[in-house]
Structure formats: C-alpha cells, structure tokens
C-alpha cells in the first residue's frame, strides 16, 4: 500500500511539473526574448537565458511608443473605475437587499437581464452618446461605462442578504439613520465582498479592449491593452518580422509583469474573487 502511494505521488508530481512547465513556458519565453540580442531571437536554437542580456529592445520600445503614458492611463482608468464601482454598487446592492420599496424585485430583474446582452450591442450607441457629449478620447469615456456593470451590484446584494438583520436593528435603536448604518455597520462587514468586487473590476477594466479601442483615438487616453494591440499591426510589413519580436516582447513584458506580480502577491484573494463572481454571477 505504501509503495503504491509512493508511486502515485511520484506520478502526481511528474504531471504537476508538466503542467507548470507548459503553462509557464510562454511567459518565460516572452521575458527571455525581450532581453535577447537580435541574433539570438531568430534562430532555431532554443536558448532560455539571453547571453549577454540586453536592454536594447526596451530602449527601442520606450523611445518609439508612449508606453509609459498607456501604462499610466490604464492604472488611472482601472483604479477610478474600481472605486466608482465599489461606491455605486455597495449603495445600490444595499438598497436592493435590505430596503423595501415598490418595484424592487422588478428593478433587480431588469438589472440582471442585462447580463445576457452582449457588450457589442451597446458599443455602437455608447460611441454615439460619447461622441455627442464630446467625450471621445477621454478618461470619462473609459471609466463611466464600467460603473454601469451588473456583476458588482449582484455580488454586493448577495452579500448584504447574508448578514444578520439584528445588527442593523440594534444600530437603528441607537438612533442611526440608513446612511450611518450603511457606512458604519454594513460596509465594514462587507470587506471580503468589496475586495472580490474590486479585484474582478480592476482586472476586467485593465484587460478591457473592445470599447477602449473604439473610444480612444490618441495616446492621451489610450490604455495599455489598446496600445499593445497596435504593435503588431504597426510593424513595417509582415515579411519584415526580423525586427519586430524583440521590441514586441519587451512591450509585452512591461504590460504583463504588473498584473502577474500583483496576482502573486494577492493570489488567494484573486482566486477567491474570481470564483465568487463566476459561481454567483
């Protein structure tokens, strides 16, 4: 029995190693290519460690593209969108969960139904709305539509439904009004739910592509996701791939590392947040 266990354990670790290698190899290859001298990139020899490593591709990318600007835009937009969603959705979710008013359930049904409407349907009208307001190519155009999301409200409502009503009753007896109850009693309890909503909102705002591609025209508001996408389309002719991959991988590394490091630091919260929105959204 013990020998059989040892064999299954060994097998298990062999498979684990295989999975880790396959999933991480592309990331390692990206970083490796980014630091490789030109001559070591276009070769059929596999070399994981650049020798000698070079920063030339990073210099090329940073001097030719507004990559820092895109990075700043992405950070500003994703942060602002996350804060907006946390505020609006915790207010709305609380009202939908804990207050009684006419038409509450119908309103919630209408909100939920929008989960099924693909974003592509709303994108054309959204563009017309923001064009009419003269807000194309601004942060507002990227941030405000995120505030209209459904999952955040849904998650916050589910969470507020789960906390015991006695706490609010006690606060009310002590003379607190609804706003004070929301701010001082309910929100502090909602930290796990708020964190989950924050992580998922930030990740989706950071990765968003379709709408930002349409809503931005210049580097002023262009986020990283859109800027990076133009790398390959901008390259001089498909045939001249010779010069493209080093700088492309340097840019990809700059864009990929912050979320990867962020994820490593907060893994448990990340995974919990994502599984929460998936299972209950």
């Amino acid at each position: 029995m013990r020998r059989r266990n040892a064999i299954t354990a060994t097998l298990w670790y062999a498979v684990l190693a295989g999975i880790v290698v396959v999933m991480m190899a592309p990331v390692a290859w990206m970083i490796s290519t980014a630091f490789k001298p030109e001559l070591q990139i276009l070769t059929t020899q596999i070399r994981w460690i650049p020798d000698p490593p070079t920063l030339e591709h990073f210099q090329t990318v940073l001097s030719r593209h507004a990559i820092w600007r895109w990075l700043v835009n992405s950070v500003v937009v994703a942060t602002a969108a996350t804060l907006l969603v946390l505020l609006l959705d915790s207010l709305a979710g609380y009202a939908l969960a804990r207050m009684e008013f006419f038409g509450r359930d119908a309103l919630f049904a209408v909100i939920l139904s929008m989960l099924f409407v693909p974003l592509q349907i709303t994108v054309i009208p959204l563009f017309l709305i923001f064009a009419n307001l003269g807000l194309v190519d601004t942060y507002a155009a990227l941030i405000l539509p995120v505030g209209a999301n459904v999952t955040g409200v849904f998650l916050m409502r589910q969470f507020f439904l789960s906390i015991p009503g006695e706490l609010e009753d006690a606060a009310r007896v002590d003379g607190a009004n609804d706003w004070q109850i929301w701010a001082r009693v309910v929100l502090p309890l909602a930290r796990p739910a708020l964190l989950a909503v924050a992580i998922v909102t930030f990740l989706s705002a950071w990765n968003a592509f379709f709408w930002p591609l349409i809503a931005t025209r210049s580097d002023a508001a262009r986020p990283l996701a859109v800027g990076i996408a133009q790398f390959l389309t901008l390259r001089p002719g498909l045939a001249q791939t010779v010069q493209a991959y080093g700088p492309s991988m340097a840019a990809a590394t700059i864009a990929a590392l912050p979320p990867i490091l962020f994820f490593f630091a907060l893994q448990r919260h990340f995974i919990q947040g994502v599984s929460m929105t998936g299972l209950k959204g």
């Binding site: 950071w206 592509f209 990929a256 962020f262």
Partner: peptide, 9 residues
C-alpha cells in the same frame, strides 16, 4: 497566471 495577462498581450 496566463489569465491575468491581458488578452492583447
């Protein structure tokens, strides 16, 4: 990990 890398990257 690949899931946290933006799709365009």
């Amino acid at each position: 990990t690949p899931y946290v890398i933006m799709p365009t990257v």
